[in-house]
Amino acid sequence: MPFTRPRTRPPGPRPGGAAATGGSPAGTRAPARTGLTWRQRLSWLDVRLSPYLYISPFFLVFLLIGIFPLAYTAYVSFFDWSLIGGQGEYVGLQNYRDVLGNPYFWKSVVNTLSIFVLSSGPQIVIALVVAALLTTYLRVPTFWRMSVLLPFVVAPAATAIIFGNVFGDRYGLINQGLDLIGLGPIQWHVDRLASHLAIASMVNWRWTGYNALILLAAMQAVPRDLYEAAEIDGAGKVRQFWSLTLPMIRPTLLFVIVTSTIGGLQIFAEPRLFDNTPAHNGGSDRQFSTVTMLVYDYGWRLRELGLASATSWLLFLMIVAFAILNFVLVRRAGRHL
């Protein structure tokens, strides 16, 4: 888990300061070093630099495949840039103006947020419930835990084929079922909200189990004696969950919320594979076009990389804003728990 637990951190000065790692106080270091042999100095360097050297591969790779594309995308977004023809004229912020002035962009933003809310919300709530159930004493716990993860192993394309049959407008499973009990069909690919629900259910099916397992791991790490103490104090299971489990797994919950926010806002494969129209850009009237699909549409169907890059950057800023919002909200909620 990348987050430390704020409540278990020992009081006092933060670890990692000079006193903890260097071995010698800062004031005595300079005169002492002059008296060292070069082997001793090497060993000193070893202690000081090696940790950074050991973690550097990650940052070098991150620089290469994370920061560089990000910066290059920003560069491309200021140019008229064709997929085939390459770099064109410098156009300043014109690409951003074009994207922001395009009704499809705003439609895609609303669709993305709607699908995000419909997926991430229920997903985390259900994952919490499932994880809570899985922490209770079950027979063959590994079997239950693996079953929950099974949908995650299935490739999105396969999921899309299954859900395509379930959510078919004319001959789909649900609509034929509705027909049997005398209800009219739902236009899953036409009605905007219905299409969002269909896509969200695809996402939830895939990710709920994954999130449940992560939350389960966090729940297992909560010291058992706390529960014993709570029980002695007369707290029921529900009270234990709200007052003990939730606050204790807060950092993990934050992690799950942040990753599912990022994933939700970048949603692409599910809506694209759900799409039946020849252009595959999110329904005949872009009922379920998402921002990432718009990026793809600009870049690979219209072959305008400049517009695609500008849209990517707008999406990036959107995600950053949401991540900060999440962080603040979870922090604040944590204080009241």
Binding site: Q187, H189, V190, T277, P278, G283, Q287, R301
Partner: peptide, 19 residues
């Protein structure tokens, strides 16, 4: 090809009743 795709989408919008 690009215009044809847009034209087909336009017909589809009338077909499926969204426009």
């Amino acid at each position: 090809s690009d215009i044809l795709q847009a034209f087909q989408a336009a017909i589809l919008r009338v077909d499926d009743g969204s426009n």
